[in-house]
Design a protein around this nucleic acid. Structure first.
Lengths: 210, 210
DNA sequence: GGTTTTATCTTGACGTTGTCAATATTATAG
DNA sequence: CTATAATATTGACAACGTCAAGATAAAACC
């Protein structure tokens, strides 16, 4: 019950959504407290009754990014309950698609701006949720013999690092994926995922999702 | 011959260095054109004769980040000329150490701020240099039988993605490396690198550099 | 139900920022 | 040695984050 209805009614979430929309329309540079307030139809100081700081608003937007990733990860597991291999592939592409469709929100989510993550427990909690789901999938893949029997935490960190780095480098200025022109980005992501499988580097294990 | 000596003499590079120092002292949020100018001992508008924009200064700082990584990569290859395995390990740790010691510069380098990379040819060129060196190392590792005989460009992208993602997640709010407490960060990086070797997941292939 | 309290929002102000325009200064070219 | 172009300063402006003071409306209390 964070969202009491006083004058405006649920202004807090309205501001968060306005912020996410501004990120989509104008990018990270266009995000300002005053513009968010204007978009929500309130005065330039109204946000201060819901966020102590600009940082706090950014942290809330970041939290929503984690929530979106987390919820999609849960959905993927439900959808492909008996196919951990498919879960991993879908998860990786979901990650990439999120970044492609909302690059500014993706960037903000991964704390380009938030310095003291500890000051925002809701953010930490949602990030933990995301990690927990990822570990479930990696664990299931190990059980199915698709991934090595390494410590599941370490393997989850490695795979997430690879997918996150791949995605970050891709949206942060087409750094090379396009410059090298070695392969389409989707295929490169599959290739990267394949590095973590038990077998050789051929693309048989993780075909592209249709 | 970019650096003519008129009134100040080499103000351009002075401003870039001042910017890097501010990043080290105050972080990304503390970087402003006016503060950079003040640090260089010039008026608040002097930078506009060397950078069209704040973005242009950021692009120059980013370029310096790429240059630093590139030069260290060249040095590593010279130092361990006959040991491609060692080159790869040292390169990965050099990357991580750079981010650890200058997190704000690392973040700025990877374009948290620069939107139109194409508008800054020097930046693109230095990034290309970095990629070229990385590909050399990966190619040497393949020749030595340490890495799979996959297309070298794709493999370089995958490995860079893993190291970059690992490093980014680590400095962007200790996202999990510390939260999971699965292993010290250095060991986790080695583990991640090991995923790309030809053999199994045991840590024999890439021991920690002393 | 009327009053008090408290949460929410507005208005106004201040210093800082990025950037433009106008002006001054100095190095280089002729 | 002058003229010109490159370099730097000063001043201004709107937008920004944030603080302070006041207004408004919901909630709590009797």
């Amino acid at each position: 019950m964070d969202t009491k209805k006083y004058h405006h009614g649920d202004l807090k979430n309205t501001l968060i959504q306005a912020g996410i929309e501004i990120l989509a329309e104008e990018g990270v540079g266009g995000l300002s407290l005053r513009k968010v307030a204007q978009k929500a139809g309130v005065s330039h100081n109204a946000p201060y009754f819901h966020f102590t700081d600009k940082q706090a608003l950014i942290a809330a937007i970041s939290t929503e990014g984690y929530r979106s990733l987390y919820e999609q990860l849960v959905l993927i597991q439900e959808t492909f309950r008996e196919d951990p291999r498919r879960q991993l592939v879908e998860a990786a592409f979901m990650y990439l698609r999120f970044a492609q469709s909302q690059p500014a929100h993706f960037k903000v989510t991964f704390s380009n701006a938030v310095e003291r993550e500890d000051a925002y427990p809701a953010l930490v909690e949602m990030a933990d949720n995301l990690i927990a789901e990822l570990i479930k999938i990696v664990g299931a893949c190990q059980k199915a013999g698709i991934l090595h029997p390494a410590p599941v935490g370490a393997l989850a960190v490695s795979i997430w690092s690879a997918v996150h780095g791949f995605t970050s480098l891709f949206i942060d200025g087409q750094s090379m994926h396009e410059r090298l022109k070695v392969a389409p980005v989707d295929q490169l992501l599959i290739f990267t995922l394949n590095q973590f499988t038990v077998a050789d580097w051929s693309a048989e294990h993780f075909p592209l999702p249709e």
